[in-house]
Each structure stands twice: as structure tokens, then as C-alpha cells.
Design a protein around this nucleic acid. Structure first.
Length: 611
DNA sequence: GAAGGCCCGCTTTTT
DNA sequence: GCGGGCCTTC
């Protein structure tokens, strides 16, 4: 698309000067290109910096790559990152102003937060009794619900003085207890990143002013996904004199409502607070006619077909069972790969040009099984995630790294002791004395102890450990050595990714970068893409199979029960799914589904699909 | 208060 | 298809 001329409307947006603007850009309308070209144009004219905020690491990587490909010095002037990454960056620099003398650790693992909320419940007398009367499963449900309550307070930016009006007393106590535990561990969670940054900016207007001076222009991609905390952070970054803010978004693609986001921030608050000039980009440069007509049946007038030449293929197919559905998809894929060249798709068909999408990951399991059997290459598109370690040594390293960087982190210290089956030890120095000299665990802890805080010898230490493993200089069984080797390699790769993008390095900031998913190597594996609709957002593929389109699966049965906004979000989700396809789209659904407990349930076509 | 019967809900999406 | 909650009954 980069070599195609910009349309008149796109040019208008790109060349828009100072002031606020709202660009309503439908799927495939070239919004990322408009965004990057405008950033590029402004970067040349301003002496100050530009802030470009995205929602996913994937999107920010894409923008960075595009900017670098236009001009590789651009990134010196432009900060591109997710809301969370930006807030982390602010707190790293100025957290001390709100009491974080040492860099807090970002606890992103749900398991960690579950343990902490469990303790918070135990510390809340009025809740403890109720909690203890529950069974395992209910306790987990209760913990998740509690985490959600805590999350909501922060997402909705409810300050302490307003809590009593909105939340009941027990929940307030729980919230305070959770906060106390987190702070005793010098830890913060995802919501804190935004909430604390907002608090920092309102309580230290000089610091906020610094950022306002620093960033002359602000861009927000996927603005329909903003939640209150994010919008408030953004507002504190602008002032009446300086509000050069560009929002790009599409209300029809709002699918993160469960996370507190609402397109109202873009459509109502932004318009009211910033009075932006509104642009509409609705020409679709991505998909073929049949696909867009189908999308327009799901959300009327969502895309204009004016610029579209190719017909493409869009088919809806119904099957007796999930098994038949799966087999058809596999056969169709095999056929397309055999045919190599098909109408309206230039070049040869290969597995990389095919994606299989579904509402949730469980729907993809039978397909995965079958792809494996047929030896067809595939990979799961994942959201950028942290370390995935499978060896004991890898987990020990990861825990010890956290303990080393944060002496207050008793949570991970106790997990570390559990793994090593040790008791009554409080420091890494003491731990190593209790381990057998030359064992892989000993060497792992030793490596951690040898690491310098600024990370300058990180690569060296890991490489030494790797070579000890290769040369079998360590005591451990064959299997552990084998997986440990690949784990430490993975850790090294995360470090290399971190090193590439960070100048001011330290072990703690490395750990936080991992938690925020910034060190994830985006070199996607080869093969057919398997993905949920949410993870596929902002991406595209020539041939898309959208499977499991039976009612109750897509829309999800819980959304049907709740109705209203939830159903609107399901519809948007379907619109996102359909518009991922560039040339061919196959929509399939089964008329029966075997439930996890063995019952065969009758199914009908999704109510969201065209009649 | 124990035993027996009926009903309900099982796996969402992510920084 | 199964475990658990909740209701009825003695």
C-alpha cells in the first residue's frame, strides 16, 4: 500500500497543522499509513517531540517499523508505545515524586495478583469468613471478581475521597488491603501504571508541564478502545494552549468494553473537551467486493466500496458437526495450496497467507489437532507475552531475578524457596550456600548473583551458563539440561530485544519490560495463522476462515444473556473478524457441538450473520 | 440435621 | 455428565 498515492481525504489529514482532530477511519482505510505520514510530516516541522500511543505492542512495533522505513532518524523525535509502556516510562523517571523511591516492579502475572488478592481477602475480617466457607472453585471465582472490583476502581479513576459514594465498605477495605500488600512488595499492576501516572500528573503539575512542553503533538491510535484512566492521563498531557491531539479510531471496532473501554471517550468526551476537526475515512483499500458487502450486512454502511476493483470470494457454509466443519476447512486449505494460483490473488498461495479465526481459543482446538495430523505448518498468533519457561532452572532464574531486583519481593522469594525446597532462608546469598556446588540450580543462582545491576554483563553471564550446559559441566538430568538450555536461550533473546530498544538499562527495567510484553520477539513462525479475533485486530490476511460461527459461541452465550452493550461489542467483534480478510473469506458453523461434558447440543447459525 | 431430588452451570476477549 | 447448591421431607 505504501507505493499507492494518498487519496484527497487522506492528504487532508496528513497535512493538517496545529489543533485537534478526530479521524474516523473504518477498517482497511489506511489509517496506520495516514498516522505515520502525518507524524513524519510534523516531525520535520517541530523542534519538540511527538507522542504516539497505541494499545498493543504489536501496533506500536508496526508504527515504529514504518517510521523507521521512511526515515531512520525519526524515532529519535517520536516516542511510540502503548499506554502502559508510556506510563511505565514516566514512573521510571518520576515515580519518586509519589513515593516510589525504588523502581516498583510490574506484576503482570494473574497468578501473582491472585495470591495477593487472597491475602488481601484474608486481611479483611468481614470478607474472610465468607471466603473460607467457599470451595476451591468458588474461591477462584471470588478472587477474580475481587481483582475486577479493584481493577475497576483504578480504571474508572476513583480517588480515595470518592470511594465511599461508589463502592461498598467491604470492597473499599479489600482495595486498601490489596494496595497495602502491593506497596509492601514494592509492586504495581497494569491498572496502577495508568492510575499512578494520572495521580503523579495532577499532584505534581510541574512534572505534567514538563511532559506537555516535551511533546508538542500527541497521537492516539485505536481511540475507540480508550478507558477512563487512559483518557484522563491523556488529558493531563494537554492544556488549553497546547492541544495538538489526533485521535484515530472506528467505533465499529470497539471490542474491549470488558476492560472498561468505551468509544464514548472518542465520540463524546474528546469532541466536548477538544472540539476537534472531524475527518471521515471510509474508503476500503484492503478487502474485495464480496467481503465488504458481507461486512456491510453486519454493520450497515460501515465501508464504502467505491475504490474496490476485485470481486474476491465470500462464502458461508454450514456443517452437521464440528468434525465435518474442521475437515472441510482442512480440505479447502489443502486444495488452495495445491491450486497455487487462484482468481483475484496475485502470486502463489502459501500457508502464511491463510488465517483461521474464532471467537475464543477453544474453538480452534479441533482445527489445531487436525493441522498437526496433516503436517500442515501453523502457529498461534499470541498477544505479546512475557517469558514462557518450561524448565525448573528457567523458573528459578526468573524468580531469583525478581528477588535480586526487589529486596521487598517476599512473594517471589517464597515461590523460589518452594521450588528449591528450602526453608528459613531470606537472601540469595544464603540460598546458594544451601545448594549443591556445580548443580544447575547452584549455577543459576550464581549467575543471578554475578549480574550487575545495570545489566552490562547480562549477555556474558547467560552465555557462560549456556556453554556450561552445552559442555555438560553441570549436575542435572539430561531432560532438565535440555529444556534449561532452550529457556536460557529464550531469556537471552528477550534481553537482546530489550537491549535494542532501551538505552537506560537495568535489571529491574528489564524485568518490567518483560512484564509489559515489550521484549517479545515478533518474528512470527511460519505457517497458517490461528488466532482469536481480539489478537488479530489491526492485522490482515489474504485468505481468512472464520470458524465456529454458531449462535452461543459467537456471540458468546454470556453476551446474549446480558444483551445491550455486550451484544454490540460482539457485533463489532464480528465486523473486525470479517474485515481482516483481504481476498477470500470463508465463514463456517456447525449444527451441533459436543460440549466438554460429552453432551451433543444442537446449534444454529449465529444471529449476527446476514440473514 | 440428614437424605434425596431437582436444577444449574460448565471455557471469553487483554495491556 | 457431574458436582454443588438449594429445596423438600421426615
Amino acid at each position: 500500500m505504501n507505493n499507492i498515492m494518498l487519496s484527497e481525504k487522506q492528504k487532508e489529514v496528513v497535512s493538517f497543522g496545529k489543533g485537534s482532530l478526530l479521524v474516523k477511519a473504518s477498517a482497511g482505510s489506511g489509517k496506520t499509513r495516514v498516522l505515520t505520514e502525518r507524524i513524519c510530516m510534523l516531525a520535520k516541522s517541530t523542534k519538540r517531540r511527538i507522542l504516539a500511543i497505541t494499545f498493543s505492542n504489536r501496533a506500536s512495533e508496526e508504527i515504529k517499523n514504518r517510521l523507521a522505513s521512511i526515515d531512520d532518524t525519526l524515532l529519535e523525535k517520536v516516542y511510540v508505545g502503548t499506554f502502559h509502556a508510556f506510563c511505565n516510562y514516566v514512573l521510571e523517571k518520576h515515580g519518586a515524586a509519589i513515593g516510589y523511591k525504588e523502581l516498583p516492579h510490574v506484576f503482570s502475572e494473574v497468578e501473582d495478583r491472585m495470591r495477593i488478592v487472597e491475602k488481601a481477602i484474608a486481611d479483611t475480617p468481614s470478607l474472610r469468613h465468607l471466603y473460607e466457607s467457599k470451595n476451591e472453585k468458588q474461591r477462584n471465582q471470588y478472587k477474580s471478581k475481587s481483582l475486577d472490583v479493584i481493577s475497576t476502581i483504578k480504571r474508572e479513576v476513583i480517588l480515595d475521597e470518592d470511594l465511599t459514594r461508589k463502592i461498598n465498605d467491604d470492597e473499599i477495605l479489600l482495595y486498601y488491603n490489596y494496595r497495602e500488600i502491593m506497596s509492601s512488595l514494592n509492586a504495581i499492576d497494569f491498572d496502577d501504571l495508568l492510575f499512578l501516572t494520572y495521580k503523579l500528573f495532577i499532584s505534581n503539575t510541574n512534572i505534567a508541564a514538563l511532559y506537555r512542553r516535551n511533546f508538542e503533538y500527541i497521537f492516539v491510535d485505536e481511540a475507540q478502545d480508550l478507558n477512563r484512566a487512559q483518557y484522563m492521563v491523556l488529558r493531563s498531557l494537554t492544556s488549553d494552549e497546547n492541544k495538538n491531539v489526533m485521535f484515530v479510531g472506528d467505533s465499529n471496532q470497539s471490542i474491549y468494553g470488558f476492560n472498561g473501554s468505551s468509544s464514548d471517550f472518542m465520540n463524546l468526551d474528546f469532541i466536548q473537551d477538544y472540539n476537534p476537526k472531524v475527518f471521515v475515512l471510509n474508503e476500503n483499500y484492503r478487502s474485495t467486493k464480496t467481503i465488504l458487502k458481507y461486512a456491510n450486512q453486519i454493520i450497515p454502511n460501515s465501508s464504502s466500496l467505491d475504490e474496490v476493483v476485485l470481486e474476491g470470494v465470500t462464502k458461508e457454509l454450514c456443517f452437521e458437526s464440528v468434525e465435518k466443519e474442521t475437515l472441510w476447512v482442512i480440505d479447502k486449505i489443502k486444495l488452495l495450496l495445491q491450486q497455487k494460483k487462484v482468481k483475484d490473488i496475485e502470486g502463489e498461495i502459501c500457508t502464511e497467507r491463510i488465517a483461521i479465526l474464532a471467537r475464543n481459543k477453544y474453538v480452534l482446538l479441533p482445527i489445531e489437532e487436525r493441522l498437526k495430523k496433516e503436517n500442515l505448518p501453523y502457529y498461534y498468533k499470541s498477544s505479546s507475552k512475557g517469558l514462557e519457561l518450561s524448565s525448573l532452572s528457567g523458573s528459578i532464574f526468573n524468580l531469583a531475578l525478581q528477588v535480586k531486583g526487589n529486596s521487598k519481593d517476599r512473594l517471589h522469594l517464597s515461590q523460589l524457596l518452594n521450588l528449591l525446597k528450602l526453608k528459613n532462608v531470606v537472601s540469595l546469598d544464603d540460598i546458594i550456600k544451601r545448594l549443591e556446588n556445580g548443580s544447575i540450580y547452584f549455577e543459576t543462582i550464581l549467575t543471578i548473583l554475578n549480574l550487575k545491576e545495570d545489566g552490562s554483563n547480562f549477555k556474558l553471564c547467560i552465555r557462560q551458563l549456556l556453554s556450561k550446559i552445552t559442555n555438560k559441566l553441570l549436575h542435572a538430568d539430561e531432560n532438565e539440561l535440555h529444556i534449561a538450555y532452550s529457556d536460557f536461550n529464550e531469556i537471552l533473546n528477550h534481553w537482546l530485544n530489550y537491549e535494542k530498544r532501551t538505552l537506560d538499562r537495568s535489571l529491574i527495567s528489564f524485568r518490567n519490560a518483560i512484564a509489559l510484553g515489550q521484549t517479545f520477539a515478533n518474528n512470527e513462525d511460519k505457517g497458517i495463522t490461528l488466532s482469536t479475533v481480539h489478537t488479530m485486530k489491526g492485522q490482515e490476511n489474504d485468505i481468512v476462515f472464520l470458524i465456529g460461527m454458531d449462535d452461543m459461541t459467537f456471540p458468546d452465550y454470556r453476551a446474549i444473556e446480558k444483551g445491550g452493550v455486550e451484544m454490540q461489542q460482539e457485533k463489532n467483534n464480528l465486523y473486525v473478524a470479517v474485515t481482516r480478510a483481504k481476498r477470500y473469506l470463508f465463514v463456517t458453523y456447525p449444527l451441533s457441538r459436543i460440549m466438554p461434558w460429552g453432551e451433543v447440543k444442537k446449534r444454529v447459525k449465529s444471529r449476527l450473520l446476514p440473514k
